[in-house]
Nucleic acid binder design. Structure first.
Length: 581
DNA sequence: GCCGTTTTCGGCCCGACTGTTTTCAGTCG
């Protein structure tokens, strides 16, 4: 039972209590408890065993007992009983945007709605629109939400399946009869959203390996099991295919199953021009006068045989990579190892889980030379944003730590400064001028028109103290779409003002989207790959960001945080300096 | 249900937006 699972159960309790009409402060106590668990830095099991959960702020005697029971026995009697009082489908109603506890209570009590199917029915037959407090628009909005949910039910963010993918990959590598093995498909191409996970492995014992694969602990169900292909479902819910081929077939199978479909179509056309056919097993001649076929043992050699430089999987979207590979102009893509530091990270001063020192130590353990802190600004009340006094106190704390590090490591003092509705910033220029850098972000007023939203952001970029723009579109993958904004205009404004654009590496964001980066790069906009980490482990989200940057054709020199410490200081100061000149 | 205390009960995060209303309730972050 991990922290996420525990906090979900506490949230569910809060929801069910609200439906029962319990004291709202009691339900909030459960929500606070859920947050406290999420924010807990340490071993929950150990805390439960030592009876120390009650010492955590937000967890009192009652919650400590219930959470301990959950951790130590895997079950919570109170929760089980509570659930029996409601239909099983009631909790899924909370996943629909626009529905909260009050409305669900009305739906349950007045219309006997037990889950999404019944709700859909009631939306269609007019019962929802007729309810007091509801209306025609509410019914339409709910139908739209149900439809969105249906259409994204078989989609997964890259981040949500990455740990499954790593575990399965490692397990396959560990099998003695497996020769070569690699992920393939959209996962290998580092698409931000995937619908399944593919692996290709070479072996002389396909049936034994298939059997082994189907019985891995990550597997929750078998969809199909044949001699050379096994399909299963993994813990995260994602379907996962394994293709078993011979060593000789491996490079072709890997290439074929990595895709994309469009990339492969273009590739097969090139094969055809040489009198060859290319499929998942081999390249073979289709006519007598075909070009001779070179021997190929690696995927790289398949591309070479077709007259192409090796194309990294991330680029295989038929977005110009084949032409570039032929002309030897493919970019040398940025790698995780190139990163020297990172910006936009939070601490306990605002809504982070870990202290400034803990974050700095975690960054050093990752081998980074510097870490930028950017806690929320005062307008982000929910996120416990810092006011001027608290920010100044944090500056002093950072100075003290930097003195301790004696140049071996550097913390950069920044802020994630809210951009107001009119494009002004949450702090005065005089305060911003004291900081090493400023991330400007939109957190409210998502529904402005495209023109207004764009003008708002452009105005923020024109402030000489705004070093970089945070999560440009505010999207949350599979959850919340981007707000309306003219991205080319933003890119132009960033280029004109010398503002860096963030590639938010949080796997739910990956914002700005990879499809824009080649364009931004060509206009001279620098990228900063930022994890937006709210806890030490999340610094490792940088890996997701690097994947997106690679998909966006970014090279080491296009990324701010590939710069070594002495150069990054100059890069951060560049915009302000230019404004003074 | 938690917390903090003037120790045993009273207060508990806040502002914007949407759709329902006709001045506000519910949701969301």
């Amino acid at each position: 039972m991990n922290a996420d699972e525990i906090s979900t159960i506490l949230e569910n309790i809060a929801r069910l209590l609200a439906l029962k009409g319990e004291n709202p402060f009691k339900t909030r106590a459960y929500l606070n408890g859920a947050r406290a668990i999420e924010m807990f830095a340490g071993s929950l099991r150990e805390a439960a065993e030592k009876n120390q959960l009650g010492q955590v702020e937000g967890i009192g005697k009652a919650l400590a007992e219930k959470i301990s029971e959950l951790i130590l026995t895997g079950k919570m009697e109170y929760y089980e009983r509570l659930r029996e009082e409601f239909p099983a489908g009631i909790l899924e109603l909370f996943e629909l945007p626009g529905l909260g506890e009050k409305k669900i209570k009305v739906l349950h009590e007045q219309l006997k709605i037990t889950g999404i199917p019944k709700l859909e029915e009631a939306c269609r037959d007019g019962r929802i629109a007729a309810l007091p407090g509801f209306g025609e628009k509410t019914a339409l909005k709910l139908l739209a939400a149900i439809e969105t949910r249906r259409s994204t039910a078989d989609l997964f963010t890259f981040g949500s399946i990455a740990s499954d993918a790593r575990a399965v990959h490692q397990a396959l590598r560990d099998h003695p009869a497996v020769g070569q093995v690699s992920p393939a498909g959209s996962y290998r191409r580092r698409k931000e959203i995937v619908h399944d996970l593919d692996f290709v492995a070479s072996t002389r014992e396909p049936e034994a390996v298939g059997e082994y694969f189907a019985s891995l602990p990550e597997v929750t169900g078998i969809i199909a099991q044949g001699k050379t292909k096994v399909s299963v479902r993994l813990r995260s819910g994602v379907p996962c295919d394994l293709r078993l081929v011979s060593d000789a077939e491996f490079p072709f199978a890997l290439q074929y199953f990595t895709g994309s479909k469009e990339h492969n179509v273009a590739l097969r056309q090139r094969a055809m021009a040489r009198g060859w056919t290319l499929n998942e097993y081999r390249i073979a001649p289709t006519r007598e006068d075909a070009d001779p076929i070179p021997p190929m043992q690696e995927e790289r050699e398949v591309y070479r045989a077709l007259g192409l430089d090796y194309i990294e999987p991330e680029l295989r979207e038929n977005h110009g990579e084949l032409e570039a590979a032929e002309a030897h102009t493919l970019p040398e893509l940025v790698q995780l190892e190139h990163l020297r530091g990172t910006f936009h990270n939070h601490t306990t001063a605002s809504d982070g889980r870990d202290s400034l020192r803990a974050m700095a130590e975690a960054a050093q353990e990752l081998g980074l030379q510097y870490l930028g802190i950017a806690d929320h600004s005062k307008s982000s009340v929910i996120a416990n944003g810092l006011n001027e006094q608290r920010l100044e106190a944090q500056l002093k704390e950072i100075d003290a730590l930097n003195a301790e590090y004696r140049g071996q490591f550097r913390i950069f003092a920044g802020t994630e400064c809210d951009i107001h509705k009119d494009g002004t910033l949450d702090f005065d220029d005089s305060l911003l001028a004291q900081l090493d850098y400023v991330v400007a972000s939109v957190h409210v007023n998502f529904t402005l028109s495209e023109a207004e939203q764009t003008a708002r952001i452009v105005r923020a970029l024109e402030n000489p103290h705004v070093t970089m723009l945070g999560h440009v579109t505010g999207r949350l993958l599979l959850q919340r779409s981007a707000y309306e904004v003219n991205i080319p205009a933003i890119i132009d404004a960033a280029a004109r003002t010398g503002t860096i654009i963030e590639l938010n590496a949080n796997p739910r964001r990956l914002d700005l989207d990879w499809r824009w980066w080649k364009n931004a790069r060509d206009k001279g906009v620098l990228c900063s790959i930022n994890p937006d980490a709210h806890r030490t482990e999340a610094l490792q989200d940088l890996w997701f960001g690097v994947g997106a940057a690679r998909k966006g054709w970014l090279r080491r020199e296009d990324v701010l945080n590939c710069l070594p410490l002495n150069q990054v200081i100059r890069a951060l100061a560049k915009k302000r300096k230019a404004a003074q000149a």
